[in-house]
């Protein structure tokens, strides 16, 4: 019970301090889940993002469900996701019903411009950490640069990057197996 509450509270905080698209959750996610609670490693977060990119649903929800399920089974998955969406429900319902004009105040615009700069710095720092744990050798570095270049040049759907990753991963294992056989 206590861990379920902790799951809910941690993802409530993550939801409350995620500003923007799914990846904006990364700094809070690594702080809460990887550094504080040690519920997952940076590598596992990368796994979840990879699966989240190519399965239905919003990445933020998929990631919350993954970590919740890992800790406390299906119930944990539900509870973590509910924690993640509760701040949205509260904040947006208040804005939509009471503060419909809040975005028109000049000061609010300045505040959000400041927050976006802060989020940019936080996401950069989280990205550095994620790349450090995700790229372990020359293969990883070369593959990272190739996929990044392809993304910048052709702007494909992220699903294709994941599919290429899956194909290359299988081919790499086959190659390693073949080399071993040749040696024998």
């Amino acid at each position: 019970m206590r861990e379920l509450f902790e799951l809910y509270a941690a993802f409530f905080r993550i939801g409350l301090f995620t500003f923007g698209g799914g990846m904006a959750m990364l700094p809070m996610l690594t702080k809460e889940v990887v550094e504080d609670k040690k519920w997952a490693t940076n590598e596992e977060i990368l796994d979840y993002f990879a699966i989240g990119q190519c399965t239905p649903g919003i990445i933020a929800i998929n990631t919350a469900t993954f970590i919740g399920t890992k800790r406390k089974g299906a119930v944990g998955g539900f509870v973590a996701t509910l924690g993640m969406i509760t701040p949205s429900l509260i904040v947006i319902l208040i804005i939509a019903s009471v503060l419909t004009r809040i975005m028109e105040y000049e000061i609010v615009g300045h505040i959000f411009a400041g927050i976006r700069v802060g989020v940019a710095a936080l996401v950069t720092e989280a990205l550095i950490g994620i790349l450090r744990s995700g790229i372990k050798d020359r293969f990883g570095a070369v593959f990272y640069v190739m996929i990044l270049a392809a993304c910048i040049l052709f702007d494909p759907s992220p699903v294709y990057a994941v599919i290429v990753g899956i194909v290359v991963g299988i081919m790499r294992i086959k190659l390693i197996d073949k080399k071993k056989e040749d040696k024998i």
């Binding site: 698209g21 992220p158 990753g165």
Partner: peptide, 25 residues
């Protein structure tokens, strides 16, 4: 093996998302 190759690929996707965040900031 698949996840081993997926890590750098997803790293590239997160880099792209990071650039998107720069665009809005």
């Amino acid at each position: 093996g698949v996840f081993y190759a997926l890590h750098p690929a997803v790293g590239a996707l997160i880099t792209m998302a990071c650039i998107e965040v720069y665009r809005s900031s």
